[in-house]
């Protein structure tokens, strides 16, 4: 009997293929489209899209608004999720997994359905159509809250109680223990949550379209418009690249915290 043995290299082939076909080649294509333009049917290298983005009032204000909406949504998510995750993780309640599941469960229901339901709800209480920005932010928070709770809960749950006891022993009151020990140690969860909420809030235009009655344009919507209605793949790709750079920069900034807390890395679920 021949014993079949896969070498590591061979086991990588399926993933390698996947990586090449669906990650590397598309990325290269986007780069190619972003730095070219079509003039009279011929494609040529150009920086026009780049310049256009940073000189167009409409695009810059869209960028600014997406950014603001995303930051506000993330901040609200954090404000709601942190106390919740903290209480949940520290509580002695035996069935806390059930509680956690109740918060996470919405994630398993299709979000378009949830947003449509929220639209009806907002209509019922008379908010729909009055303040589109507020509605969009409500939608984003509602939609992405579980993504904030989960990493926070995992970090806080894994927090070694002996650290807190040691801090208390050394004379720290509850507030000091929290600000000097608990919060810094939960930073990886916070960062992970922020990235999980911030990025989609900048692009998830189903939320802004449904709840803002198409009054609000965010970056994701702009990209969609360039590909589907304006028929300009070059500009669409350029905006995607700019978004990518923004996200990359945020990661770079937040990455510092992660390295400092190497031990707690397991919390970084995503």
């Amino acid at each position: 009997m021949v014993k079949i043995h896969f070498s590591r290299k061979q086991l990588c082939i399926p993933y390698g293929l996947f990586l090449a076909l669906f990650v590397v080649i598309p990325m290269l294509l986007i780069l190619f489209y972003a730095f070219t333009e079509t003039v009279d049917g011929t494609i040529r290298f150009s920086f026009a899209n780049f310049l256009n983005f940073f000189t167009s009032t409409a695009k810059l204000s869209t960028l600014l608004m997406s950014f603001t909406i995303a930051i506000i949504s993330t901040a609200i998510c954090l404000l709601i999720a942190y106390p919740l995750a903290y209480i949940l993780a520290r509580s002695k309640f035996k069935k806390k997994n059930v509680l956690l599941m109740l918060f996470i469960m919405p994630m398993w229901i299709n979000f378009v359905l949830r947003i449509t339901a929220l639209r009806e709800l907002l209509d019922l209480i008379g908010l729909l159509g009055t303040d589109n920005y507020l509605n969009t932010i409500i939608g984003m928070v509602y939609d992405f809250l579980p993504f904030m709770i989960l990493p926070l809960y995992t970090t806080l749950e894994k927090l070694d109680n002996s650290y807190l006891e040691a801090a208390a022993d050394l004379g720290g009151n509850k507030f000091t223990v929290f600000t000097r020990v608990t919060f810094p140690l939960s930073m990886p969860g916070v960062i992970s949550g922020i990235t999980m909420v911030f990025m989609p809030s900048m692009t998830n235009y189903v939320v802004s379209d449904t709840l803002g009655n198409f009054n609000i344009t965010i970056l994701g919507k702009l990209i969609d418009q360039y590909f589907t209605t304006y028929d300009n793949w070059h500009m669409g790709s350029m905006i995607s690249i700019i978004l990518l750079v923004i996200i990359f920069l945020t990661m770079l900034l937040t990455g510092r915290f992660k390295d400092e807390n190497r031990d707690a890395r397991g919390a970084n679920l995503w």
Partner: peptide, 20 residues
């Protein structure tokens, strides 16, 4: 299209400036 983008993207509300 540029005109339409401006219609859809402007004006930036006052609170957004404050928030930023």
């Amino acid at each position: 299209n540029e005109m339409w983008e401006e219609v859809k993207g402007l004006p930036i509300p006052l609170w957004a400036y404050i928030a930023i």
